[in-house]
């Protein structure tokens, strides 16, 4: 069999959901994530133009960087003028800000929240900890690279970056979206097995579905 065919068969395989108890497996989906193919070129450009101007952050603070999101919304920095608003539920948000270090306990929630967001979805990794572990590079409990577990679109360096840097990061994200380069969701769907293996390597008590939409 050719390598391409093997890949296609892998794609069609259902997920096992082995972490769940037997009786609950029916309640959760066993489909793999699928790619989003871009629509007609001009329609896609138009949608990207609108997406870049309406960024909804998931209101989930993962680590110390979340404290930078609060001043972002207040009178001084006023991110709402760029169309950046908060959303309480992952179903409606399309930007996920990883605020700094992600511990073992948090990465489980990050993966769940990220998978529940409906694509196209973007990830901003905030702070040095998400890039190479930052000052927690030798910690027993803090992951070093967030891009081994979920795809990242843009990094904002610093420890902690100030809200100005975060707004600069948002502007970078906007440019990428408008150019149509933010395909984190497709990347996740293509390399799903690799991401899942990395996640399961550190989350040893995997007690959730393999992919929760």
């Amino acid at each position: 069999m050719k390598e391409k065919d093997i890949k296609i068969i892998e794609k069609e395989m259902k997920l096992a959901n082995e972490g769940l108890p037997e009786m609950e497996r029916d309640l959760f989906a066993d489909d793999r994530p699928s790619r989003i193919e871009p629509l007609n070129k001009y329609l896609e450009q138009f949608l990207n133009w609108a997406r870049a101007r309406s960024l909804w952050i998931l209101a989930y603070g993962t680590g110390c960087g979340a404290i930078e999101l609060r001043p972002l919304m207040t009178a001084r920095f006023d991110a709402f003028r760029y169309g950046i608003a908060g959303r309480p539920t992952p179903r409606q948000a399309n930007v996920f800000i990883i605020g700094g270090y992600a511990s073992l306990k948090t990465i489980k929630r990050i993966v769940r929240s990220y998978e529940q967001m409906q694509g196209p979805k973007y990830v901003i990794a905030l702070g040095s900890c998400t890039i190479n572990g930052g000052m927690y590079y030798d910690s027993y409990n803090t992951i070093n690279r967030i891009d081994y577990y979920i795809p990242v679109d843009i990094y904002v360096t610093g420890c902690m970056p100030r809200p100005e840097s975060l707004i600069a990061g948002f502007n970078g994200l906007k440019k990428k979206i408008q150019a149509g380069q933010c395909d984190g969701m497709n990347k996740y769907a293509d390399n799903f097995d690799w991401y899942k293996a990395n996640q399961k390597q550190i989350i040893k008590d995997w007690n959730m579905p393999d992919y929760n939409w």
């Binding site: 309406s54 909804w56 169309g83 694509g119 196209p120």
Partner: peptide, 19 residues
Amino acid sequence: RIGPPVWQPILDIIQTHGR
């Protein structure tokens, strides 16, 4: 604050329909 542009709700609706 400065506030979002007046047409922001329209952009939001286009964005949500593009999901």
